[in-house]
Design a binder for these strands. Structure first.
Lengths: 129, 129
DNA sequence: ATTATTATATTAAGCGCTTAATACAATGAG
DNA sequence: CTCATTGTATTAAGCGCTTAATATAATAAT
């Protein structure tokens, strides 16, 4: 997690619990490779300060990520991304499948078939940097 | 909105405000054509009972949909879907664009390019009924 | 040993969403 | 007019999320 291009430092959607949004952003960092297996996570107080949230709120997010096996904590040394790369890959695939499934379900509910959705992706995809 | 295939009668995600979920489901019904312009919306008390939510919560959703112009209310006659079909179409396109954009952004954050996303849609699309 | 740094736990307060129980307002039906 | 049906407004309570202010526990560094 070098430098400043963090997805972490964005403001939060006031309609969703902050701790779940932090969980989601950490998954993105880990699954995209922006954070590597074994990499150290900033200290709770430090990161909470940086994100502008309460340490308790951040810890709740960390606990959830540990529960899922993506982070582990070593007493006083700090907190780290799991070294289990196979787990990272498996959870990533699973999450991607869910995102795709929910996307298609929502498009269908709005009256768009999978074929139409695919077409929109083809168009919109070109406009992304 | 004939018969029982309603997307309304699903249970609610406990992590999201109920009233926003009701707003979203009504948009789906209107945008997909399951509810037609000018069609009557069930009475607040009746629909609230059917959905298992408090009338106040349902009314909050209805107010939001009126604020966006998708519903209007006629004093004691009840509440109706807007007759402005052009508005419906415009808002539908807008929402679909947002859903597509957010989908691609999330996929990208997970390390998937637009091309990869498109491929996943192509595969997953065939498995839908 | 002492100190600093780490994660973790506790308690109280505030705020938004939801519910319950009402009451009020407007109008079409009888 | 009277009544039923519609939307709308009000008040109080409960619950989860967030914050603030602490305190505790464990260990590496000195």
């Amino acid at each position: 997690m070098e430098g400043g291009g963090d997805s972490l430092k964005q403001s939060f959607d006031p309609n969703l619990p902050i701790y779940t949004q932090i969980v989601d952003r950490f998954k993105q960092l880990i699954f995209s490779g922006a954070m590597s297996p074994g990499e150290k996570v900033p200290a709770v107080r430090e990161l909470a300060l940086e994100l502008g949230v309460n340490p308790n709120t951040l810890q709740r997010a960390m606990s959830e990520l540990e529960r899922e096996g993506l982070l582990y904590t070593e007493r006083t040394a700090g907190r780290f991304v799991t070294d289990d790369n196979a787990l990272i890959i498996a959870l990533r695939e699973e999450l991607i499948a869910t995102v795709v499934r929910e996307f298609l379900a929502e498009m269908k509910a709005l009256g768009c078939s999978s074929a139409e959705a695919e077409l929109l992706i083809k168009r919109h995809g070109g406009e992304m940097k």
